[in-house]
Design a protein around this nucleic acid. Structure first.
Length: 645
RNA sequence: GCCGACGUAGCUCAGGGGUAGAGCAGCUGAUUCGUAAUCAGCAGGUCGUGAGUUCAAUUCUCACCGUCGGCUCCA
């Protein structure tokens, strides 16, 4: 006689079933509509296949493909199908790992055949076949030895390696059709459930991410519950490409990086330079307000300085080679800190002076491997909005809190409201005492908690000289770039013998904080371009207003308007070419200029301008305004739209 | 640095062992125009660099440089 078991459903109700009932049956019975979207089930909090058999009382929840977890399972199953297709199409392929990722999945293969984009189409066709075949995914448990033997017969050496490292006695294997893969699961009930997928790209990837290992071939793909969602995603990728800062940088004539100068070295064109100038002015003003002192330091220094700082030993790979100056080696600077320390050390400091905050827009040069360079986001020469704070230990927490608030204020001023914050703690190799680390980590944590911001702890990811807070901004393709960083440093004060005279008339060592709010101006600008898709807000726009004449007859009046605008400090351009108005407007729109002032006979006669605006939703834009009124209105708007003046 | 793709006019791209193609931009001319492309003509290239194969290479091969997508790295 079969046992009855009590199943607690998602809605809290309890229902009895015969033991051995599958999760699928329960869900079908109790929530047929939701069951259609179920990818798997959750039994007592554990993710399981829908075919999972329930043998005792349990709580059962559906995992639908529109949930994060359901979609992950869905994509993971798609990656298995891809692996099968690849194995069937190409000989000698060894499978390795194929997980889901944020927007899709990948699978890494060790294959004698080099995959081409054309192969992706063939693989997609094969996958479609497999999916049509409606092959069920079947889970099988076996002992580790059996599994190693099983994969040994298939020459799947990577799988054998993985199994050997699993601590459990038993491992699970998922089969569908003639394909089998080591996998924890769960998976979709069958291949037929996969409705829309696309293979996206091929890339190299080291086995287990270690560059000492063999380079495998990775195929990236994505899958969605419906064709419509897949198309939407592909469209999003297309849209993202349009706001790529490298593309906009050319189109809007903001910056360039040329082969002749060298990779990773940026030229700021006039329009990019305008934006940079505004950022720098804003930065200086805010640093003055926050009680920092701005300094300037040289671009090169003796190798000995970098030996003292430790950079020579620790970051040799990222430093440019020394140049000989009268028999002494000098290198171009990779950082600003030793200079700021020299300024601090230029005379004896009293505890009364602390905290001392030196800030500098310091241009540094670091050697980056060619493969990592990326537009403005990863370069070899860049200007940090750097600062070093020297404080007494008891001031640390307050200083960190202030820096954190300052950072958030600056980022928000530029329209960034979403970022990822990480607190990185003590790594295996470190300098300084445990006590110091604990206090510093605690200071960072308390500051973060007080700020109310969400953050993650990256255990062991701190720099050897101290814990840090990193703030990352995402680019259009979802890649996160670290901009802001706040780092505590126990190392440099020691190495440079940084001291202050305490109230007790004894020498003490200050704690040093490195911080960059925007990180580097180059990277920040790149993120800014993408964030605004090139349509900068009024206060940052390289050109705020363009005057468009209708015919050559209006040239004189147009010039008068233009000259007045410039005199009033409005960043302006004029287009008096012998072209039609439609063309001039089109080009001004493409240049993303916020305001267009059209002037023809009517305007010239009455001293007015016809206002056309790129920015939608601005209140009270005068349509045909008396020119002087427009300037007044414009200036008012600019002030209202600029961060805290 | 590693894997792969790519490199043709200022930009976006087509082409292909036998004297190099388009659109846009540029220049000249016509047009004098009211809210996202007026028309015509002209000019523009060592086909990334270097070597090799060939009667002949921009095309095929190799190396290097660079860009892109990843990996690795990232003070």
């Amino acid at each position: 006689m079969p046992n009855q078991i009590k199943i607690t459903l998602n809605n809290g109700k309890v229902k009895e079933y015969e033991a051995g009932v599958t999760a699928a049956a329960v869900l079908k019975d109790t929530a047929a509509d939701i069951f259609k979207k179920a990818a798997a089930a959750q039994v007592n909090g554990r993710y399981v296949d829908l075919t999972y058999e329930l043998n005792e009382d349990a709580r059962v929840k559906p995992v639908t493909i529109d949930s994060k977890e359901g979609l992950d399972i869905y994509r993971h199953s798609t990656s298995h199908v891809m692996a099968q297709a690849v194995k069937e199409l190409f000989d000698g392929v060894k499978i390795t790992i194929g997980p889901f990722i944020e927007d899709g999945f990948y699978y890494d293969f060790d294959s004698p055949h080099t995959f081409t984009p054309f192969d992706l189409e063939k693989i997609e066709e094969k996958m479609a076949d497999i999916i049509r075949g409606d092959r069920p995914f079947v889970k099988e448990e076996m002992s580790k030895e059996d599994a190693i033997k099983f994969f040994g017969e298939k020459s799947e050496t990577y799988k054998q390696e993985l199994i050997a490292e699993i601590p459990d006695e038993k491992v699970s294997i998922y089969r569908h059709d003639n394909f089998a893969d080591l996998c924890r699961g769960p998976h979709l009930p069958s291949t037929r459930w996969i409705k829309a997928f696309k293979l996206l790209s091929i890339a190299g990837a080291y086995w287990r991410g270690d560059e000492k290992n063999k380079m495998l071939q990775r195929i990236y793909g994505t899958a969605f519950p419906t064709k419509r969602e897949l198309d939407e995603y592909l469209n999003r990728l297309e849209e993202a490409k349009k706001r790529d800062h490298r593309k906009l940088g050319i189109e809007l004539d903001l910056f360039s990086i040329s082969d002749e100068i060298g990779s990773g070295l940026v030229c700021w064109h006039p329009k990019g330079a305008v934006v940079r100038g505004i950022i720098e002015d804003f930065w200086k003003r805010e640093h003055y307000r926050h009680d920092y002192q701005v300094v300037y330091t040289p671009h090169i220094a003796k190798v000995d300085l970098w030996k003292t700082s430790g950079h020579w030993a620790f970051y040799r790979d990222n430093l440019y080679s020394p140049m000989d100056v009268e028999g002494q080696g000098f290198i171009v600077k990779p950082m600003n800190c030793p200079f700021h320390i020299q300024i601090y050390n230029s005379h004896l400091r009293s505890y009364r002076e602390l905290p001392i905050r030196y800030a500098e827009l310091g241009t540094v040069y670091r050697f980056e491997r060619s493969g990592v360079l990326h537009g403005l986001l990863r370069v070899r020469g860049f200007t940090q909005d750097d600062a070093h704070i020297f404080c007494r230990p008891e001031q640390l927490e307050e200083e960190i809190g202030d820096v954190l608030n300052f950072t958030i204020y600056i980022l928000k001023s530029f329209g960034f409201n979403e970022f990822d914050i990480y607190l990185s703690t003590r790594p295996e190799k470190y300098v300084g005492t445990l006590d110091k680390w604990e206090k510093a980590e605690n200071a960072l944590k308390v500051a973060l908690e007080k700020s109310g911001l969400k953050f993650q702890i990256d255990a062991g990811e701190g720099v050897f000289y101290g814990p840090k807070i990193d703030i990352k901004i995402k680019d259009t393709l979802g890649r996160a770039w670290q901009c802001s960083t706040i780092q505590v440093d126990f190392n440099l004060p020691e190495r440079f013998n940084v001291k202050y005279r305490g109230q007790d008339d004894k020498e003490h060592q200050p704690i040093m904080i490195h911080r960059a709010l925007m990180g580097s101006l180059e990277r920040f600008f790149g993120c800014l371009i993408e964030h605004y898709a090139g349509s900068f807000p009024l206060w940052l726009a390289p050109v705020q207003v363009i005057v468009l004449s209708i015919t050559e007859k209006n040239e004189a009046y147009a010039m008068k308007v233009y000259e007045r605008l410039r005199f009033e400090g409005v960043r302006s351009e004029i287009d008096i070419r012998n072209e039609k108005l439609g063309l001039k407007i089109r080009e001004a729109e493409m240049q993303k200029i916020p305001f267009m002032l059209v002037v023809g006979d009517r305007e010239a006669e009455n001293n007015t301008v016809a206002v056309r605006t790129r920015i939608k939703g601005i209140e009270g834009v005068p349509q045909a305004a008396d020119f002087k009124d427009f300037i007044g209105w414009f200036k008012g708007l600019l002030i209202r739209q600029s961060p805290a003046l």
